[in-house]
Structure formats: C-alpha cells, structure tokens
Amino acid sequence: MSTIKLTVNGKAVSVEVEDRTLLVHLLRETLNLTGTHVGCDTSQCGACVVHIDGQAVKSCTVLAGQAAGANVTTIEGISKGDELHPMQAAFRDNHGLQCGYCTPGMIMSSIDIVNRHGGKLDEETVRHELEGNICRCTGYHNIVKSVLDAAGRMKVAQAAE
C-alpha cells in the first residue's frame, strides 16, 4: 500500500491504495468518478482516456503511483458548472454519441486533438488521430463531425478569452 497525492479535477486528493492499482481504478473505485470507463484490457479502446498534465492518456495503462503529483482531469471536470465544454456541446449537437460508453474517452481524446492541432484540422487528420478510441455505435461519422465542429467552437472560445 502507498499513499498517493495528486490533483483531480482541480481538487487535491490523498489516497491509500495498493501499488498495483491502476489510475482508472483509483478514479472509479476510490474517488467514485465513474465517468471514466473500461472497455478493454489491452490498452486499445480508449474508453478510459483522461488528461494527465494536459495530455490525453489511457488511465488503464498508468499505475496510480505514476500519476502521483500530477494534475488529472476527467470527463467530470471539463464543464464549468452548467456550461458544457465546447467539445461536450458539439458531441450532443452533432449526435456524436449513442450508448455513451466510449463517449467520455472520445471527448477527452478529442479535446487533446484540437489542443494539438488548433484550427488546422480536416476529416482525414481527425480520423487518424482517433485511432486510439473505439466506438461500436456511431460508425465514427458523427464523432468526426463533432470534433471538427468543436475545433471551430474552441477557436472562437479561445479568441474570446
């Protein structure tokens, strides 16, 4: 057992967990942040994607100890009160989700894609960048549409700030 201190969604937390604990289990089971999901056991589906220090990573492939001292953001931490993050709004408005299970990981990965590419996104780039996230419902058509839409919204939001 080890004590791990980290920041999750802006709040400092300190938890005692077994060293074998994965970050995703710390989030889901210890912190009750069940928006982050587990969809595979081979680090491929991306349902578990969260941000560590601003980078999209698969929380099923990070030991809790590796995240010690880090700033972790989950799907629960991206909206400002009632105001959705532009990526969340774009997924809703473009029907970028169906069953919702892959959605938190998709949104967290997509925010990272836009952060890295800014406004220079096209369909082909988005499809390539979504390689680490699997969806079984949407055929990706509306997810791609959502990301492109959000890229525009995020640019506007940044310009406004």
Binding site: D41, G65, Q66
Partner: peptide, 24 residues
C-alpha cells in the same frame, strides 16, 4: 523497469508478468 508502461502494464494486467518491484 517501467518507462511509459505501455508494454509492461498490459502484460501485468493479463497476469503474464508478476514483477516483485516496478522501477519507474
């Protein structure tokens, strides 16, 4: 040793590796 963890941790998750110590 563990660097990024994307090789070792999947193998550990499958219980195909059981290191006593993981050195990051």
């Amino acid at each position: 040793y563990l660097a990024g963890g994307h090789t070792l941790l999947p193998v550990m998750k499958q219980r195909l590796a059981s290191p006593s110590d993981v050195i990051d």
